[in-house]
Each structure stands twice: as structure tokens, then as C-alpha cells.
């Protein structure tokens, strides 16, 4: 397994480098100078030039790239052009809400989705129909609409949860942290729940029809043991893969929910940085996203490999 992980990591390093290079030079193509955006329309060209010099933006793009890459290799992603804050600090602060949202949503959808999928496959009939109905409904409802509805009902009409904002786990504790995330997690999970439940349902139905299940049942193995030890393990492989993909899409797709709930996450930060031409943050954010995607893929690969040893030898 160690060799397998090392092999995957060896592939990841050049991938990060390629993503970083492409994104750096793509950002250079965006029209508009960061200095002009910061200073606003009332600034003179001299003032814009002076700020560009102080930000190092007057150097050739290749020089800027080498400087940035050297810094990045040492953990220094530079400073935000707009706020002056170290980019790594800004990204780390923004990473916490986004990761909290994505992880909680993934755990919720994975847990519920597995239960729903298993129940649908095992029980069939009304349970199956109910699962399909709930899953389809979740996928059909736009999450921004559901978010607005949840805020109206559970934050305004019944003031159970905060409508907006984020409480840091380290400083404000578990309760406030969770309470601020309940509504965004519910809004985010609705779509993903259907996908995972349907995937789990298909995987369980497939596994339940296999010969080894019939053999186990014929040998008198208790049904609970058959389901949870054997079927669950085999059915989990495609579910884990889908969950990994869902997590990645969730990371990239939380912008709207972060806006609605005013969560100071990566999506909000990236949107604001793009709007203000704060390219240093955009560049750092792209790097963080690519690292997150690679890491999640690695976790999914390892999980899949541990569930299905055949994967390791492919």
C-alpha cells in the first residue's frame, strides 16, 4: 500500500506544477491592472505605475513566475495586492469554512445516502420508491432556492439557526461552529444526497445478486452479517468514487451558497479577488484547489484500494 501511495504522489507533483504554470499565465491574460483596480478610476497613471512597481508587477511575467514559484516552494505565496495580508493566511482562513462545509456535507450525504441506498435495494417496494422520490426531489431543487427557503423558515420565521456568517471552531467552540453550518450543509447536501443514494442503491442491488451472497445465505450466515460485512464492502467501491467526485465538485461549487450565507470561504474569497484583480490571491487559490483535488483523489484511491485489493495491482 505504501508503494501505491508513493506512486500516486509522484504523479501528483508534476501535475501541481503544470496547473500552477498554466493558471499563472492564464491570469496574466486577464484584462486590467491590479494597481488600477486598487486605486480606482480617480488615480493618475503615475500613481498606478508607482503601485505596480511597489507590487513588483512591472517585472516581466517570466520573472514574476519564477519569483512566485520560488516563494511557493518555500510556503510563501506573496501578499494580497488589495489587503496586504499574506496570501497563505487569507487562504488558510478561507479554507476552514469551505472545508467544514464540504466535509460535513459529504459525511452527511455519504451516511444518509448509504442508508437510503441500502434500504432501497434490500427492502424494495415502497421504500425503494420513497428513496427514489426523495433523491430525485433533492436533485431537482436548485440549492440556492433551497438555501433561501431554509433561511426563511429556520433562521427568520423560526429563529433556530443563524442566517449568515461563520463561527470559528477553535475560538468559538463546537456549538456555534455547527449551528452556523447547519443550513448551508442542508442546502448543499440535497443534490449530493440523491446522487449518492442512487449510486448506493445500484451498487447494493448489484452486489445482492452476486453468487457469493447466495452462498453465504445458503451457509446460514446471518443476514445482518451478510449485509454489513460482505455486501457493504463490495458495494462501497463505486460509492466512494462518486463521493470523491462529489466532494471535488462541492469544493468548486460552493460559491453561490457562500454568498447566500455570507460564509467567508474560498469561493467568496476567490470571487472577490477576481472582481478586484487581486491576482496573487487568485493564483494561490488555484494552487490550493488543485492540491485539494489531488489530495481527495489520493484519499479516494487509497480508500478504493483498501476496499478492493485488486485496484493496487492494476
Amino acid at each position: 500500500m505504501t508503494r501505491y501511495v508513493l506512486r500516486r504522489l509522484a504523479v501528483a507533483v508534476p501535475l501541481v506544477l503544470v496547473v500552477a504554470t498554466i493558471s499563472f499565465f492564464l491570469v496574466q491574460l486577464v484584462p486590467g491592472s491590479p494597481a488600477a483596480a486598487i486605486l480606482g478610476p480617480t488615480a493618475t497613471q503615475d500613481q498606478v505605475d508607482a503601485l505596480e512597481r511597489s507590487l513588483g508587477l512591472d517585472a516581466p511575467a517570466t520573472t514574476q513566475f519564477v519569483d512566485w514559484l520560488t516563494g511557493a516552494a518555500h510556503g510563501d505565496l506573496g501578499r494580497s495586492y488589495v489587503t496586504g495580508q499574506p496570501v497563505s493566511d487569507a487562504l488558510s482562513q478561507a479554507l476552514a469554512p469551505t472545508l467544514s462545509l464540504a466535509v460535513l456535507s459529504t459525511l452527511l450525504t455519504l451516511g444518509l445516502g448509504l442508508v437510503m441506498g441500502m434500504a432501497a435495494a434490500v427492502r424494495g417496494g415502497r421504500t425503494d420508491k420513497a428513496v427514489q422520490w426523495v433523491g430525485s426531489l433533492g436533485m431537482a431543487i436548485p440549492n440556492f432556492w433551497l438555501a433561501a427557503l431554509l433561511v426563511f423558515v429556520l433562521a427568520i420565521e423560526l429563529p433556530l439557526f443563524p442566517a449568515t456568517g461563520y463561527a470559528e471552531l477553535a475560538t468559538e467552540g463546537l456549538g456555534p461552529w455547527l449551528s452556523h453550518l447547519v443550513l448551508p450543509v442542508l442546502a448543499l447536501s440535497a443534490v449530493n444526497l440523491g446522487q449518492i443514494a442512487f449510486q448506493a442503491r445500484a451498487a447494493f442491488a448489484d452486489a445482492l445478486g452476486r453468487d457469493y451472497v447466495r452462498t453465504l445465505q445458503a451457509t446460514g450466515t446471518p443476514r445482518r452479517r451478510v449485509l454489513f460485512k460482505h455486501v457493504l464492502r463490495n458495494a462501497s467501491v463505486p460509492v466512494v468514487t462518486v463521493t470523491g467526485l462529489t466532494f471535488i465538485f462541492t469544493l468548486g461549487g460552493v460559491v453561490i451558497l457562500e454568498l447566500i450565507f455570507n460564509l467567508p470561504g474560498l469561493g467568496n474569497l476567490m470571487l472577490r479577488s477576481v472582481q478586484t484583480n487581486d491576482f496573487s490571491v487568485v493564483q494561490g487559490g488555484v494552487l490550493y484547489f488543485s492540491l485539494a483535488v489531488i489530495l481527495v483523489n489520493l484519499v479516494v484511491d487509497v480508500a478504493t484500494a483498501s476496499l478492493d485489493p485488486r485496484v493496487r495491482v492494476r
Binding site: P159, L160, F161, P162, G175, P176, L178, S179, H180, V182
Partner: peptide
């Protein structure tokens, strides 16, 4: 759990 979170939420928010 919801009541607990809500209580935390109202005190924080």
C-alpha cells in the same frame, strides 16, 4: 441536537 445547536447559534449570532 437541533435545539442545542440552535441555542448555541442564538448566543453566537
Amino acid at each position: 441536537l437541533a435545539a442545542g445547536l440552535a441555542a448555541c447559534g442564538s448566543s453566537s449570532s
